[in-house]
Design a protein around this nucleic acid. Structure first.
Lengths: 205, 205
DNA sequence: CCGCCGTTTGGACGAATGTCAAGATTTTCC
DNA sequence: GGAAAATCTTGACATTCGTCCAAACGGCGG
């Protein structure tokens, strides 16, 4: 038998899932480097210490691997952002903290965010990705909404838009900043900070 | 000789460019259907009445073909939007007109816009696309800015954000609406209309 | 020590890819 | 009408893709 066993290990520490995670992390690095269209299973294997055949021992096919990658990306993503709002005393402080956080996220790992937008677009062509991508989008929307709600509370007012719209607006700023940042525009990060800071007061009343 | 002649025709009506356009239009249909990652030269040829070999008579390689497609898409794009602002008498009318226009554009050709976002993301991986994509982005930004400026004028006020930010915000709404529309959410178009209408007053003071 | 079982390798496959070239066909021009 | 140029088809090429398989590896209980 070369296919993955149906009933999994009795060993307490589940090495099987660990290896899946390890392979998926390598695949994420490859995806960040090359993008979905240019990433093959062999390229992914080159990012690991294993051979290409192993991928089909841990994943049924390419779609299952990429899907697992998307889910894994989400795990890292929500963990990173669930900290968040924190201890801002004034609306202005919160807006600055959020702006700095988003700009830092973009500046530190632009290729990861490029990959996210790539995968999100691919989900429009590959229905198998759609559900997981939608889940990530929702968690990002919630993250944004927590910030907008907290800002409104500190400003003793109420949000004037829906969570969906708030996320769309912030995401638009972020994506445009990513495009400009990767095109070499020096001011992209600063403009993103300013744009985010100025966006908050537009969304409450 | 199988390569395209270096010195082009003396015939007044340049059939060469016409055929390039014809092939590029077919390629755009294929791209809209399948997305960049899944579109091969042979599938493009299947969208035409010619054979796959002809593509290399009119285009040096795949990148040049896709690049030409992007430029062609831009031509159709700016032509479509250069109408625009038109004859709104009040700020509210203009906002509604713009909102209806964007929602109609999304509703009538969602696959074309899906392709645009796909190509824009691919430009982050394929530098050959970057310049043309940036040009399209600029023309879209200008289109948005004309609307925001006109809105501010009708409202007897001034825009409070940069053209770049205005475009990023509108684009965020549009892209999120596209995602939801293609996922089958019935309310996506209406939400886009409302989101756009409400966005205008947030951007002036 | 052997044999078992989960793991890993490396090669093979058929299909699909981008590219190219040789020939057939059509158009153009004298 | 016939030669030359432009256009188009067809088939081939090397490569790469996803997938699969037979064999080898490795640790552990008997």
């Amino acid at each position: 038998m070369t296919s993955a066993p149906a009933v999994r290990r009795r060993t307490p520490a589940d090495k099987f899932e660990d290896r899946r995670r390890e392979l998926a992390d390598a695949a994420l690095l490859a995806l960040a480097d090359l993008g979905y269209a240019r990433t093959s299973l062999r390229t992914i294997a080159e990012h690991t210490k294993y051979s290409h055949g192993l991928l089909h021992y841990y994943f049924a096919d390419k779609v299952e691997l990429i899907t697992y990658c998307v889910r894994r990306y989400k795990a890292a993503c929500v963990q990173r952002y669930e900290g968040g709002v924190g201890d801002a005393a004034t609306p202005g402080e919160l807006a600055i903290a959020c702006a700095d956080g988003l700009a830092a996220a973009l500046g530190e790992a632009p290729l990861m965010h490029r990959m996210w937008y790539d995968l999100r677009t691919q989900s429009l062509y590959e229905p198998a990705f759609r559900e997981d991508v939608a889940e990530i989008d929702e968690s990002l929307r919630d993250m944004i909404w927590r910030n907008v709600s907290a800002y409104a509370a500190l400003a003793a007012s109420e949000p004037t838009c829906s969570p969906t719209d708030a996320y769309a607006l912030f995401d638009g700023l972020f994506q445009q900043a990513l495009l400009r940042h990767l095109s070499g525009e020096e001011s992209a990060l600063d403009d993103l900070r300013r744009g985010v800071r100025e966006l908050f007061p537009r969304l409450v009343a």
